[in-house]
Each structure stands twice: as C-alpha cells, then as structure tokens.
Amino acid sequence: MSDVVLAARGVTQRFGELVALEGLDLEVARGGFVVVVGASGCGKSTMLNLFAGFDQPTEGHVTLLGEPVAGIEPRCGMVFQNYALFPWLTVRGNIAFGPRLRGGASDERVSELIRTVGIEGFDDHYPAQLSGGMKQRVALARTLANDPEVLLCDEPFAALDAMTRQVMQEELSRLAAATGKTVVFITHSIDEALLLSDRIVVMTARPGRIKTSLENPLPRPRSAKQQLTPEYLALKREIWESVQEEVLAHIAADA
C-alpha cells in the first residue's frame, strides 16, 4: 500500500441536483501512468479537479501520499487542454513562474527544463509566437518546474493536429519514463490511452464511477506500428466495447 501516491475513496461529487461522481474508487501507484477514458460528461475533469484540490468532494476523500487533499495541492501539477500559458511571460518566464512564487528559480534549472521538453532556442519567445505543440511543451516544463508528485493531464493533446499529437505522445512517454513521475491522463482517444498507459481506467456514464480497470501489457517503447498487432486490436476492442456501452447510456440519459 505504501506505493499508492494518489487515491480516491468512495468519492461522490454533487453540484446541486447534478451528481457528477458517485462512489468513485481509484488508486494510482507511484510512477504509474494511468489513463482515464470515458464518454464526455462522465466526470473525468471533475475527478481531476478533486485531485488538484480545486474542489472538495461532497462525500468520501482524496488522499495524496496518505494525507487528505484539503486545499489547492501544488504537488499535483495540472496540464491543461488549452495550455493556459501566461501570454505576458516569455517561455522562460512561464517555466519559472512556479519556483518564483517561492522566492526564485535558478536559470540553470529553467534551461535544463527547456532542454528536457525540447524547446531550445525559444527561451525568449512569447506564447503567441509558438505553435500548439510548442505551447504544450512549455506548459509541461512549467508544471515540471514545480517538481510535482503527480502530473494531472486534462486532455492535453486534444487541440493538436494528428501529427503533432503523435510526436507529443511519444515525448510524454519518454518524459514520464525519464522523470519517473506518476501521471493521471484524461482522454477521449482509446489509441492515445493504449499508447501511453500502464493502466487504462474506463469510467461509467454520469454519475461517474470506475467501470473497468485493466493493465496495458503492450511492450515499451510503443509506436504507431504496434497499432496493427492482433494484441493491440484485441485490447482496443475490449476497451471500445466497454466505453461504447457508457456512451450509449449517456446518450439515452440525455434523450
């Protein structure tokens, strides 16, 4: 049990009449890469907000390293779909934002992060001058600068074009392996889940719970080539069927 970094136990989240999550249980092991897939509106983002401490659950509790998450938790670093970079800061300024709040960021550390995410030479560029893929690299570096226990990724590559997305997926796999960070990653894409994850978690339609949790046995490093192997296709079908039921349930509930 000691290697459980992040856990949700019996978490229910209500917003007035709306029950977003109900009785959600999830454990994330140290260094694990957990990808959460589910129909839209199933409460994936709600769950991430609880992990980051943006919200408090109506019932149940969320723990980080065994302690309850009571407020904003900077040890759970968020990566947003729309990057959320500070437009008035340069690449360096954005990356140094977190450390500067606590008194200072060493230039070497920022330079190191710039190399880590592969944006050398763009140090003094503003976000407006960068492509989507580059922006997300900066956002990753900014989150890593705080040296968080857990990376919470809220569909970070959803706004990227297909080619860039693939490059970024490989980069994130490499980064996660290199830094040993624990990652909770939300996506709509089953392919993305299969490419990135150690474990795939399927959520039910609203109110959200964990429906299935399965280990991803595909060997690393993974690449697009694997997407044609029978093993990959069998896994994809299994997840797809699980997700599809929930999508249909969601549509039925909305109708």
């Binding site: 904003i72 900077p74 670093g77 970079l85 977190g98 709040l101 989150t143 705080n146």
Partner: peptide
C-alpha cells in the same frame, strides 16, 4: 480574464495576493 490562467497559477502555488 481566462479562468484557466487563474487555475493554472493557483495550481502552481500562487496565493491570493500573487
């Protein structure tokens, strides 16, 4: 102001004044 900027800064550890 984009609420995600506030969320991002809060997540990075910014207090109210910051």
């Amino acid at each position: 102001v984009d609420p995600d900027l506030i969320r991002a800064a809060t997540n990075l550890g910014a207090g109210r004044r910051q």
